[in-house]
Design a protein around this nucleic acid. Structure first.
Lengths: 142, 142
DNA sequence: TCTATTTTTGTAACGATTACAAAAATGTAA
DNA sequence: TTACATTTTTGTAATCGTTACAAAAATAGA
């Protein structure tokens, strides 16, 4: 596990420090698209000296090097995705859960390019209300 | 023109005050996906007493009522879109320009819904470098 | 070991957005 | 019209995620 993460970082030109390994491994083992604070809180017990700034720095570096993706949704906190293969996301407006959606990419990638432009990234986001929140709301009304 | 904007607001349950009409009309006549500040600066000459807070309030209200869309891209400022029919966007990483892209919506809307969820909005964003910025960069290198 | 470079850390600053309360505008009823 | 209630606007202060910065710690190379 750890050695795979190490190779993954090196492949993307990121030196595998303790903190970077921990952040990268967290993203690879938690497909919840966590925020900076969620990552910081989760890793603090293991790395008591960890600083929030380090988490910010690390994530920014990983994004620059193409090792992870940023997802900017709604207001507030940025979220991160350790898996860069093309896939869509579903965001629940109510509880904020953000899920992966498998999508055939042929309809998106390489399509709809403005003349002369070069596309580097395609983001497809579905927004709405998840099954759980719909159930809660229907109970409240009834 | 003005009366159409007025009808549009009323259709969405928003009372057509002077400020709201101005913001809504600005979005319908400038398809540049402006930021709060761009809207504020543009309308200040016409409405000298205009407050930035009013622009924020108005935009939030319009979004709530489904009259306009928010686009959260990268870090920094939120951008607004006065046209709610489905279309994709292209964002230039370099100059920040955000353009509409006409897209056949059959591949997206109503597709890929997680079980039990209700979809309200679909956002498709292409990121890359626009024709103009590519040209500038190739000149700098040569 | 010694030295240069990179990384981490904590604090302070920044900036977009929101909270809040007062002032202004608008609507309604007599 | 007047009086009163409601909505909207406005300006300031607060909030909060993120970044800037400089010192401390860790790491790499000779």
């Amino acid at each position: 596990m750890q050695s795979e993460i190490r190779k993954y970082l090196e492949k993307h030109g990121v030196r595998p420090s303790l903190q970077r390994l921990a952040v990268m491994e967290y993203l690879r083992t938690h497909r919840t698209h966590p925020t900076v604070d969620e990552i910081y809180e989760a890793l603090s017990p293991q790395i008591p000296t960890l600083s929030r700034t380090t988490v910010y720095n690390t994530l920014n570096r990983l994004v620059e090097q193409g090792a992870i993706l940023v997802i900017d949704i709604d207001k507030g906190n940025r979220r991160y995705d350790g898996f860069t293969e093309f896939h869509a996301h579903f965001l629940c407006d109510r509880c904020g859960v953000l899920e992966d959606i498998a999508v055939e990419d042929s309809h998106f990638v390489g399509q709809h390019t403005p003349p002369g432009a070069q596309i580097r990234d395609v983001q497809l986001l579905y927004k709405g209300v998840c099954a759980g929140c719909r159930q809660k709301e229907s109970k409240n009304i009834a």
